[in-house]
Design a binder for these strands. Structure first.
Lengths: 262, 262
DNA sequence: ACTTGACCTTGTCGTAGCGTCAACGTGTCC
DNA sequence: GGACACGTTGACGCTACGACAAGGTCAAGT
């Protein structure tokens, strides 16, 4: 038998056979005078045994070990381990399909993007035409949706809910507009302080206490600008370098006010 | 944000981030004076979006295409396709686990090797101490178990059943012994013809007709030695070069006799 | 001033299981 | 003698990074 016959007999390519030789999975047979490999039935038996195990999902290394260990108890152990491995794979694939189904249900309603269903609603409600700040918040929320743990995620959604409720939406849009207006303003502009006060007034008391507690626990680079971040807003300026000084000042003031209330 | 912060924020390694840059999955951000990459929140949003899709099992190429196609209908198609792909994977893994379970049940009874359950029984019954020919037949059957389609496989098992039935086993062992005896014999030895006749007598009529029909349809290199294979037993000598001339002559005669009967 | 340590940079090799060339020799058939 | 189907070795490609190497940068401690 030459390599092509062996390969078609076992249902593999000749490349596969040579690959197995290279890995010492299949012993190199004798060569004919012209250099061709000459196989016997024994080789076909070994090859099909290898294939059988490979098709079960075993790695070629494992197969080599098992066959080298000359049939027996070792095989059972490896097969059991393999079964456990396959079970894990099934679970992860199942989990993926579940997440996929959730995503598909969402994109079915609105072909937005890849976020969780409840967050998607907030993002839709928060889409304000032409406001750079609304877009910023949407970015922030989209990010928090995936990086924060579920408890914090719910907190963030609540944080923005006042801006998305139908009766409050108009007021929310007005706030975004006032922020956008400060693009070219001076940090000492009188509108800065009043806007900060209006923004701070938006947060219910119990949310403020939870928020302040969370902030103290947050890692430094995720902490919004407060008086402690001495350079005047580390977080906001690194995350959004394009903000004007007046705009960052608004947020600094808001944080100070919230700190005092919490 | 520097690369380490971005990476921990998204829950990946810095290597992964740079890899995504290399693949144009994530745009290269501006560099600081020292050459460090300086990221913004926008980048974190993109990165988490990529990760979200990657964790669903999409390839990075697909993700790039989807994100490039700027959100929308394309995403749905790809997700549906992905779901179908995952479903296929689940099926194949399920099939693997089924085969594994069958194998485990078999090795539970007898730690033989990797064959189907019914074949395993034949192989056990066929194990004759010290007979080279019994081993050959075991090899042959093990091979046929995996390469032949189920119908032929059953045929092969039936072919050997006369040798494995308890009441006939002794006669089978005797036949193997008589074959083994011919190792150093001359092809013209009188024992050759009588052994061939005894062997041929073992096959029931209906099996002979089926066998002969099958042989005509078989590809050339799988066809056992007959008078048509003019060089005196192509199949047997290539598969088992260590056979003596007397032994191959036995099989040639058997095939001739069967041909006449069929 | 020096060292440590934690970052950052680019570049290269390795992974599993082959597919897919390339560049070449062999053997058979018309 | 040319086509064609086979065989040979060798090397690169693929996925999604991990794990080095061999440096440069920066803040803190001694």
């Amino acid at each position: 038998m030459r390599i092509g016959e062996l390969a078609t007999l076992a249902g593999v390519s000749t490349r596969t056979v040579r690959h197995y030789h290279h890995l010492n999975l299949l012993p190199e047979p004798e060569r004919l005078a012209n250099g061709y490999r000459e196989y016997r039935l024994r080789d076909a038996v070994v090859l099909t045994r290898v294939r059988r195990l490979a098709e079960l999902g075993m790695s070629l290394d494992e197969i080599r070990d098992v066959l080298a260990d000359d049939q027996g108890r070792e095989l059972r152990e490896v097969l059991l381990e393999l079964d456990a491995d396959l079970a894990r794979q099934q679970e992860t694939i199942g989990a993926r399909r579940n997440r996929l189904a959730a995503l598909l249900a969402e994109t079915d309603l609105h072909p937005d993007s890849t976020v969780s269903p409840d967050m998607a609603k907030v993002l839709r409600d928060l889409s304000v035409e032409g406001s750079k700040f609304a877009e910023m918040d949407r970015e922030l929320l989209a990010l928090m949706d995936t990086v924060a743990d579920p408890a914090d995620r719910a907190g963030f959604i609540d944080l923005f809910r006042p801006l998305t409720e139908p009766e409050a939406a108009a007021r929310g849009h007005a706030l975004y507009a006032r922020l956008d207006e400060l693009t070219d303003a001076d940090p000492g502009d009188p509108r800065v302080a009043t806007l900060a006060a209006d923004l701070a007034a938006h947060f219910p008391d119990e949310m403020v206490t939870a928020l302040v507690a969370n902030l103290d626990a947050a890692p430094d680079h995720l902490r919004p600008p407060t008086t402690e971040n001495a350079d005047g807003g580390h977080w906001l300026t690194t995350m959004y370098p394009e903000l004007s000084a007046a705009q960052t000042e608004v947020f600094r003031l808001v944080m100070v006010m919230l700190k005092e209330r919490g």
